[in-house]
Design a protein around this nucleic acid. Structure first.
Lengths: 138, 138
DNA sequence: TTAGATTGAGACTAAAATGGTCTCAATTAG
DNA sequence: CTAATTGAGACCATTTTAGTCTCAATCTAA
């Protein structure tokens, strides 16, 4: 059981890396080298981040990727949602079988409470926050 | 992304069901019928709970399963650990690549904090607690 | 203008996790 | 003895996760 998949982890670290040089385009090759992330896989991840508007890309010669937002506008919960989907209950709620017996309701209610808690935490987590912590740690 | 898999969900609901008749052995067949859980699958889950000492089984004629502990001794976190493994970081920490750069450390530190939070919540959740909520709701 | 590096897009693959089934032996109450 | 039960283990299908491969389009610099 892991809250954060490798894909999200890669994405967040790539974004952190890009935030070091805000204006500049950095190639997937460079980011891959820096962070030790499989090149082709990282490319897919960055392409996805382009599609969702978190980064901007430039093809050709000295192309690459750069952030489209300031680090404080990049919420980790949103990144995770892209690559892991929303934090949600075990689908049953959205299907026919709503609360066959009372136990379901109670259990689900409790799980939902915890999921909401997790959601809040990741919602409060931004690139800027992480960057700040990195600076302090230096 | 779901905190609770179907397997854990089934296990917890089965335990809640068994806790209604503490002394009595109830067959997997009956539990399966009650909760609408696939019979063979439930059997596997119950077998596992026997192995881990949460329930006791009796073979033959009017056999079945019953709780070995009182509901307040059954912690949901432990059940989840059995069927989903421990809540843990994306393995990297336990392998060669510890903190290639500072970003890793900071990100991981934050994730670990949230994971610990989740762990605490599930650790505080017991069968007894759920049962109590069910009674109140009646 | 051409070579080289880059991104875009999409198919493809391998391994693990998840959810579930099937079979058969051993046990036991009636 | 029979029927219902658990124990054990193999088996299977689908989904998720992680990653690769190929080729076209774009752009920079020589």
């Amino acid at each position: 059981m892991q809250l954060l998949t490798k894909k999200s982890d890669y994405a967040i670290r790539a974004l952190l890396s890009l935030s070091k040089t805000p204006e500049q385009y950095v190639s997937a090759r460079d980011v891959s080298g820096d962070l030790n992330i499989p090149y082709e896989y990282l490319r897919k991840i960055l392409q996805r981040l382009v599609k969702d508007g978190f980064v901007q890309s430039k093809e050709g010669g000295i192309g690459g990727f750069r952030l489209t937002r300031t680090p404080n506008e990049v919420v980790i919960a949103e990144i995770m949602k892209i690559f892991q989907g929303p934090i949600q209950l075990s689908q049953c709620m959205f299907r026919s079988q709503i609360c066959v017996n009372r136990a379901n309701c109670v259990l689900r209610h409790n799980i939902m409470r915890i999921e909401a808690l997790v959601q809040r935490e990741f919602q409060a987590m931004t690139l800027a926050g992480l960057l700040e912590q990195m600076e302090v740690a230096l």
